[in-house]
Design a protein around this nucleic acid. Sequence first.
RNA 1: CGGGGCGUGGCUCAGCCCGGUAGAGCACUCGGUUCGGGACCGAGAGGUCGGCGGUUCAAAUCCGCCCGCCCCGACCA
Length: 477
Amino acid sequence: MSEEKLTSRSENFSEWYNQLVQRAEMADYAPVRGCMVVRPYGWALWENIQAALDRRFKATGHVNAAFPLFIPMSFLEKEKEHVEGFSPELAVVTIGGGETLEEPLVVRPTSETIIGHMYAKWIKSYRDLPVLINQWANVVRWEMRTRLFLRTLEFYWQEGHTAHATYDEAEEETLRILDLYTDFAVNEAAVPVIPGRKSDAEKFAGAQRSYTIEAMMGDTRALQAGTSHNLGQNFAKAFEIRYLDDQNELQYCWTTSWGLSTRFVGAIIMTHGDDQGLILPPRLAPIQVVIVPIFRNDEEKSLVMPAVETLKGQLEGMRLKVDERTELTPGFKFNDWEMRGVPLRIEIGPKDVQNGVVTAARRDIPGKAGKIAIPAANARTEIESLLTNIQAALLQRATDFRDSNIHPVDTYEELSQVVQNGWAFAYWCGSSECELKVKEDTKATTRCIPCDQQSGAGRCVVCNQPAAEKVYFAKAY
RNA sequence: CGGGGCGUGGCUCAGCCCGGUAGAGCACUCGGUUCGGGACCGAGAGGUCGGCGGUUCAAAUCCGCCCGCCCCGACCA
């Protein structure tokens, strides 16, 4: 259970995050370096994320399947950029059942290769296309520096893999998923994101084009919260994914892949949390409403508990928890549930019962300011609208914060200044040299070239050559 | 892999410099008083001091080796 005060965000954001994840019982360190245990409360949040995404995948015609954890080493080697990108971080199994394996097996870092192999088997005709498969899985990448949820050796995610007849269809799918991710982030998680395209340097190993949703965390650093890749024909050619078109001509497929991981849990924590702890968006919160009954003796208890039961009945179907722990004071419980980010707390004490009300306390508005008495009779309506308001307020606050920390810049000096504590938005000529110079000078990288680009042209903030597009520069997780 | 820090009850740490009966706070258990913003009193349980070796009459403490974790840098969702 939680101890005293959390390190404040302003004092040390990174320490605040580490403490919060553990004290809110989202996750804990595993006995293996860089691995985490996702605790029931954290997993419940992930399950809600999964449900919100899975609904959207199904609604756009995708189906789920499961592919193996182990991938023959030779598969990885079939796509040049892919193996170059991933080989430093592979976990490889060389012994099975006490015998040295003839061919080492890679623990999947992502599944393009093994799925590509299967698609080559399954796809023969244009009538087989498109193939729209998603899998929910764990993957392993041997990272050097790890942080709970944000970067762990093993993480959980979904990876979609699709195959299409034309480039345009693949590009359309890639962007459809980018939209889907954006819709999920904004409307379910209340995390404002900027959808855009990755630079060549930042794109996925083996992709033709990578898209991303970029979010700003509470310390203004950027977090890639989901990605969608148009793989072109790179994997189709490496794995011979081909079909006969309606002219009886053999063609390579065009494939895509896209993923969103448990990292998103970190995004939610770092977008909404405050110095009291987590603040979870009502639509995803494992517990939307917590009821804290307040009484001093049996007489008061017999007054209060029926009111609690009545409210519980009214809130049927909502994600609700009644805190009946007897050994703790109400004050402690308030802080405890605030640490865990429950969006709405209902206090019911003798005074409330006498007045025919319940006291609601909004997590997003700390202290007395967030407390209101609502009539017990139509509590459900009030509570539902409070949750809706909280959801909207979280999005608004995060959006305002983000927007006030994005600065359009015209000069390199401004850019260097701004990225120390915010995002810079500037024209960029598109060259890797300019991108690299910024990275070396300031540690900030290009985050994305936003999709809704105002038409126009300018000059590259680094080299002053003509530039057609604007890009965000920021320090990233 | 470089740089820094740390391993002592579940957690945070003191003790180590200067070797000599393993400690505190929190958490846990029991009893009582409390309860509308992190309650209090009393009693109790719980530790091969990261591991191995060495020095010594005697090692948490001194020496050597090893292991692990955290933080800061180069790769990444």
